[in-house]
Design a binder for these strands. Sequence first.
DNA 1: GTCTATAGAACGATAGAC
DNA 2: GTCTATCGTTCTATAGAC
Lengths: 218, 218
Amino acid sequence: MDAAEWLFADQGFEGTSIRGIVDAAKVNLAAIHYHFRSKEALLEAVLTRRITIINEVRLKRLEFAEASAAPRSASVEEIVRAFIAPTVEFAQRDKSGATFVQLMSRMFTERRFSLTDFLGRKFGDTIGRFTGALLGALPHLPREVVLWRTFFAIGAMHQVLCSPGKIDLVSRGLLESTSNDELTEYLVQFAAAGLCANSSSKPSKKKSKTLTSRRRNE
Amino acid sequence: MDAAEWLFADQGFEGTSIRGIVDAAKVNLAAIHYHFRSKEALLEAVLTRRITIINEVRLKRLEFAEASAAPRSASVEEIVRAFIAPTVEFAQRDKSGATFVQLMSRMFTERRFSLTDFLGRKFGDTIGRFTGALLGALPHLPREVVLWRTFFAIGAMHQVLCSPGKIDLVSRGLLESTSNDELTEYLVQFAAAGLCANSSSKPSKKKSKTLTSRRRNE
DNA sequence: GTCTATAGAACGATAGAC
DNA sequence: GTCTATCGTTCTATAGAC
């Protein structure tokens, strides 16, 4: 449901009530519970509807980039572009597309287990395919470094997509608005350069505590 | 209140009820409304308590980096480190610190105006100081490019901080846990390299629609 | 300043007529 | 499959005793 997509993106999952969706979509409250089992299932249906499409486009672009570069491996920039461009283009297509990428990015910051698990199922294979390509294109870097940098790049992309107005925190209104094509290129250049950085000073003085210890609630 | 910090970080603002906080903190429901005016004011109080400290450390580090490099401008890497390291170190300090940076990162993805406005007031000056330093260190790059890249770097940092377990989406469990010191260096290297990238292929085929809310005035 | 008690509204979910 | 009606719960916020 388009109304659910918009409201979830705008107010978050918990901040959105089924009743609000019902009012916006001018449908019946009980019909939601009939077609989807619950509020959470509705969210997953909204997400699944588009994620499948975006990831298919991503994989197609990656395959094309790899075929074009064969027998050498595709360049980091092309791999990154194959991941990022479909998302920005999807956001560009129409209002609904823009809304969806906001929602998707926002869901990556949620900590609820059921959602994290859902994202893992939906994105695991695609991301795995891309990390494989990046590891192949950056054989001189440790696996750990490439994986973290991939994560950073996704974070940079999500920050841009999930809350459009937040750039004002940095620009303070001094920035003319940037076209999507420019933005894609900015992102790709940034991410590709970051991924290719020389890993010169490996500190390797390990401390005990880490940020990555998982805390599963319930 | 520490309990509020934890619950807001874990479940988001809308997902957390004052009653949940009251139960966790073993205090009285009415006392919350007496000391803070509302749920939103409680959130802002929780955020303000720490943001001030982190931003002070950031500015101190930036000034030190600039003084060390004088009369030349500080290196991009040092500027970036002055921004990122205090946050990761804060997260490392104790459980409460780790919880807070998760909360702060998460709030950056919220779209509610009152919160966006609040973040602008709390972070505007600090971020402005850093973008100024970066513009000085990267005089050959267009202002627009530097500002966007700064935004990307902040996004990369937030992605890491806000939901610790999400790296598994990329690593699929194949990654041993990384120490915070390593993680800081990974982030700094990634962000510095991204910020310094050659802006070779400026696309400049402008399309009409943009992802950012403001319209181009032309 | 801290409590109990409760107002007043909104929530997710379901039952059952049609 | 779509409706009305409602259950049982939870929510923020406040009033008023101590």
